[in-house]
Nucleic acid binder design. Structure first.
Lengths: 351, 351
DNA sequence: GTGAAAGCGCTAACAT
DNA sequence: ATGTTAGCGCTTTCAC
């Protein structure tokens, strides 16, 4: 194939000329929904001409006067946590299916986040999905002030009147506590993440509430915070495993920290899971099901969460975005790191 | 904070009025490089006015007449492979630092990839980075025909005259073979990925070439292909571990399949690694260093690869993008899944 | 050095 | 139902 010169794209004028209609007719032929009045035969003539020139409307020009692009911004937290990779994939697939593309914004370590966010918004994005804990409040406010639909994904900021999709973190934490109690565990450890992260707090809260209600004394619950990373979990897990009165059950508010803790407990400390310490996580990332971990954890209905988040953006409607709070149920998946007390409870056998 | 009404952004006209200059002066004040002629004092007046109105140029309007946006497209393969999450993160960080944003394109399962790619390109992206194996040839051609700079990241298509950054896959495969030979291994298995993926073929080729040169008979090398996923590796690893003449050394062309194979070998088959079967991977994703795996693997210089890829895009220069082939060295990292033959070889102790 | 003016390719009134 | 016209906010000649 000879290297053809950069061919300039055909414009609506070219198509109009070829089809023998006005330029605006071309615009109408391509306007989504078929809303504007155009006769079907004309439309077909235009589309034929367009096909011949392999024309498609220039989205840049389009968004210059509509004020909306076909772009949705995704503000990402830490991609070392596989959860966010999976989230990104789902969002991208779904939005692409709706004719939208994802513009990614990774929160920079340095403080120039604000400038970069401005740049993202200046693409006249149709909506913003926030999955990062850092800066999310101010970012959300910036967007809302500009009238851009915002959805908080798995983070909840009570003071902020923004749409939000999350799962029932509190109930999930409670379910772990109940499972541990049923397993006869009497000494507990709780590994939380960032203190500002509401998800972490809610999960921890649900766990402690159930234990407290069951009469467990606060002295029997060790609580520690660590970074939401494998290494964070590793270090914290090692420390917990070494503590004087070693906990029998460890609840980590994130799968990734749970995996770090498990590796420390087994390989650094030489203890067995669940015999010496039972471990539970939260999130059910792909890795948790692996034979190396078999982590008992709370499955988040990610598919549903993504779909709800996209819905709340109200991309195709004329109506403003919905400031709705969606809370979805989680599902305790028993694997080997914390075994189900009775045979009838749900288990997962997949490798 | 009262919900303020969606405030409309200030335009260059507003700034011009406030600064007492013409609109074109504002444009010049913001033009990158300071290339166009504008007196420094004027520039300062404009910038001050801009700050007051918190103005920044509208990139949509800008790209409508420059024909280039501040957007780079990233075509992503499978995000279940953690490698790509890490790649995405680095690209986004680097490009954001250069004032660019990443537009993500995930290759859809269905056949409408072409339409979606068209849409991506129609944003007048300044460059395209291709990390997906699927369709990459046709996609690259589409871009090149339109004069959009393309960089193939970790995939090489000889028939395609496109810029390309990859690591020395062949040498890496050879290094594994040598390490296995030095460890006294005499029966080998090779787990390849997609037959179309050049990276996979090169790694496998390097491995086999060294073995052959060392006089290993082809009969002592079992070769199998599997999907480049954890599950693919698990299934294939199990089959290999069960084979009549069990291999003593297993080279998987990707870390993720190596981890799957390791889990099958240890937890499904009850064999020991490396005593019964030594395993090596390729890539050195974060997970490979974990205590659960301690996978001996080839470290790709991801940071350098990303930087080179961005450079080849020639974003800031007037010159067209460079159709250069960059091949970077890989580094065999010894961990416990395949031990170094002599104490002096490089090892990695990190948890 | 600075301003005026002509578009970039499209959408959305406004006519007809 | 179709064509005409006026912008969207900017960059870029072209005069001065």
């Amino acid at each position: 194939m000879p290297r053809s010169r950069p061919q300039k794209r055909a414009t609506s004028h070219d198509v109009a000329a070829l089809a023998g209609v006005s330029q605006s007719a071309v615009s109408r032929a391509f306007s989504p929904g078929g809303h504007p009045l155009i006769a079907e035969p004309t439309r077909q003539r235009v589309l034929a001409a367009a096909r011949e020139l392999s024309y498609s409307p220039n989205p840049i020009a389009r968004s210059l006067n509509t004020g909306r692009s076909a772009i949705v911004a995704l503000i990402l937290g830490d991609l070392a946590n596989p959860f966010y990779g999976q989230v990104l994939q789902r969002f991208s697939d779904v939005l692409q299916g709706m004719g939208r593309q994802l513009l990614v914004f990774t929160v920079p370590a340095r403080a120039d986040a604000d400038e970069a966010l401005r740049r993202v918004l200046s693409f006249q994005v149709e909506g913003v999905i926030i999955t990062a804990a850092q800066l999310s409040t101010s970012m959300a406010r910036t967007c809302m002030d500009r009238g851009i639909p915002v959805v908080m994904f798995n983070r909840y900021i009570p003071s902020l009147d923004a749409a939000c999709v999350r799962c029932d973190n509190h109930a999930g934490g409670g379910a772990v506590a109940r499972a541990m109690l049923a397993a006869g565990i009497d000494r507990f450890a709780l590994l939380t993440g960032d203190a500002q992260a509401t998800a972490s707090n809610e999960r921890a809260g649900g766990f402690k509430d159930v234990l407290r209600a069951a009469g467990v004394s606060p002295g029997a619950i060790i609580e520690r915070a660590c970074p939401t990373t494998y290494e964070g979990g590793f270090v914290a897990g090692r420390a917990l495993g070494r503590s004087r009165r070693r906990p029998r059950g460890l609840f980590c508010v994130t799968d990734i920290t749970a995996m770090g803790a498990m590796d420390a407990i087994r390989f650094d400390l030489g203890l067995r899971i669940p015999e010496d310490i039972a471990v539970a996580g939260f999130g059910d990332v792909l890795e948790s099901a692996r034979a190396s971990y078999r982590l008992t954890t709370l499955r988040q209905p990610m598919e549903a969460m993504v779909l709800h988040a996209v819905r709340l953006l109200s991309l195709d409607e004329r109506t403003p975005s919905v400031r709705e709070q969606v809370v979805l149920p989680v599902d305790l998946i028993f694997r080997e790191s914390l075994v189900a007390p009775v045979a009838s409870m749900r288990t997962d056998q997949a490798g």
